[in-house]
Design a protein around this nucleic acid. Structure first.
Lengths: 209, 209, 209, 209
DNA sequence: AATGAATGAGTTTTCATTCAT
DNA sequence: CATGAATGAAAACTCATTCAT
């Protein structure tokens, strides 16, 4: 059994290694621009080997995104689960959590966004599609929950909470994407964290006219 | 001469038609995902014909982006040029302008962003590259100018104006991208306009702690 | 009638202009490498116009070669026609004639050679094919005639005269081609003329062991 | 290890097979006229497979020429390396060697010539370009060396030895090309060998006026 | 389990040729 | 006559995917 176990672990590790390589390449080149060969090279494997672990390119891409979304969900749920925090403080921690995710792996959001944008193009198995959509929805729901309370207490602007969550995500994605797309003048180190926090807070809180 | 004139106009129209078709396809499929054949089909032309108007795929893509950036610049400059407005009002109008651009052509920013992100991959002529970069920079500069005054008057947070402009763009792009990436629950009609305006104002103005 | 005449002359001139342009391009790029558009551009005409004067690319190429072969034939026949010259002197003049042809238009032989080499590939009308072959044969025959006499008088080696003529042509072509193919160390100015003359003489005369 | 070894040998064989097919097609159609598909068909492979062994068409062509030049060099060096031969005898053997090369593979020189003539058009890697040029130069140098001695002894005409080598090559090429370009009357079997030998000898020796 | 090798199905691009004006 | 514009057919090249070993 020990043998079978080690086998299984090794297999899992290899799978992870492939996903890592894929993340790197997909982020840099986009879905269409990335090639299986390039991913394989980065994973120091032969292209044929990828197909032992994933059915095809689009499935590999999807799996990658499932993994990323899972991490994102996990982190967001951590924040949402903390009891006894004021709504505003929770929102602040949400900003921090998202920034953590980004710091931990700057490519996550880029990939997730690309995925959302190109999903229709890919012939994913219905299950996988379902899995992705439901995880994205779940992350959103959890974030929405964070705003919900504040809205109920009249602290936040009375937008639909999901819309707020949505907005936060979009702002964050925008920041990240823009960040990525530029060369030249990088914002000060704390800028991203700082601004994100600010933006989230304010958008949630709204302004008194 | 009338003949030559009509010829020229027809040619220009055809060029525009191709750019329109390209915008549509590129937006939906991304640069790599789009095929010349598909673009040609959409323009109701043969693929070979595209090459009468553009040197190659990447040049077509670049030309498309030049056009879009030009429109964006134009609109932003209109706002910047209005005299006698308070900084805050100007910022509000900037939000409106950007929303106009988006309404007029929802695909603009998506394409522009993709372009920025993939520019390095493409073998554009140096002139074209220069043109794109300078236009993007110009749009940013003009936006920065809009914030400049407010900062000087102590009304806006003392971030570098270019960073602010940058941020606005990123927020807007994020909104748009997110918009695009979703299917299903579209935000209420005014939501985008409203939120953008809000976000810009606030980010510019900052909060007093 | 004067009008019709001028028309005809103009037409003929245009045809010649096209052939000139074609010679230039075909020589530099070879048959397959040359494009109708390039030839047209050189002739300062539109591609479509070429088709008013020639049926298609291969026919244009063939016509060009007919013209060149005609010039070559003409020059060789001049030499052959001179009465009262010793065989050796005639051979010397032949060398001079060939060199003249080359000097007058260095591209002639290259084209003729290429033509011979690729003739089978082209779908020429049987008449044109016949015309080309017969002119090439004629040039060869005339050259052979030049050697004939010397052989009969026991001055030249008793090879078949046509084979000798053939050899001369091949040597000359080799020189020209080699000349063309090199960059870098060009032979002394007179080298080509000199050597050609020498080679012809000697090959014709043979050596006494 | 045996496996890896066999693999390597098989790979090498395949490469050679492709080069053989390429030689055949390039010789018959020229560089531009030949198609990868045709070459692949001749090698009984799919076109895509060619690209596993060669980067692109021009590189395949270049590799072919490297191989041919190598063979030529080898054979010529054999002759040059033989000690204790009179200059004239060496020249005779050179003629024989070149004829050998031609007999072994009649297409060699045609390809080499075409290559020299079109090299500038192709986008070869600098290394490959260098390789080709240096091998061609080497063959020429070696041939020149063969003449050198005879010139020093006053047996051969005092042309620069390289020019003589050059000339020999051009004559040979001319013979071969002409041979190829004709259909119909093939020279007697020994004709080519015989004449080449003669031509080389005489050109080298020169004539006493 | 891993992979070297092969390829079918595209994709971009070119170009001889046609045709309406 | 001349040509601007268009395109069908082909050619180079790419890449996801398979399969024998």
């Amino acid at each position: 059994m020990g043998v079978a176990e080690r086998r299984a672990r090794e297999k899992e590790q290899r799978r992870e290694a492939i996903l890592d390589a894929a993340k790197e390449i997909f982020s840099r080149k986009g879905y269409q621009g990335a090639t299986m060969e390039e991913i394989a090279a980065r994973a120091e494997l032969s292209p044929a080997t990828l197909y032992l672990y994933f059915d095809n390119k689009s499935q590999l891409y999807a799996s990658l995104n499932v993994k990323m979304l899972a991490f994102l969900c996990h982190r967001v749920e951590q924040v949402a689960g903390q009891k006894g925090l004021e709504p505003l403080e929770k929102v602040r921690r949400l900003a921090q959590a998202m920034h953590d995710v980004y710091t931990f792996d700057p490519l996550i959001l880029i990939n997730v966004l690309h995925m959302q944008a190109s999903q229709e193009l890919m012939d994913l198995s219905p299950e996988l599609k379902e899995q992705i959509n439901s995880m994205a929805a779940r992350a959103l729901q959890v974030m929405a929950g964070i705003f919900q309370q504040g809205i109920e207490q009249g602290l936040f602007r009375p937008y639909p909470p999901v819309a707020l969550a949505d907005l936060v995500w979009s702002v964050f994605s925008g920041l990240v994407l823009w960040e990525e797309s530029k060369r030249g003048f990088a914002p000060e180190k704390d800028y991203l964290q700082d601004t994100l926090e600010l933006a989230i807070e304010i958008m949630a809180r709204g302004v008194s006219k």
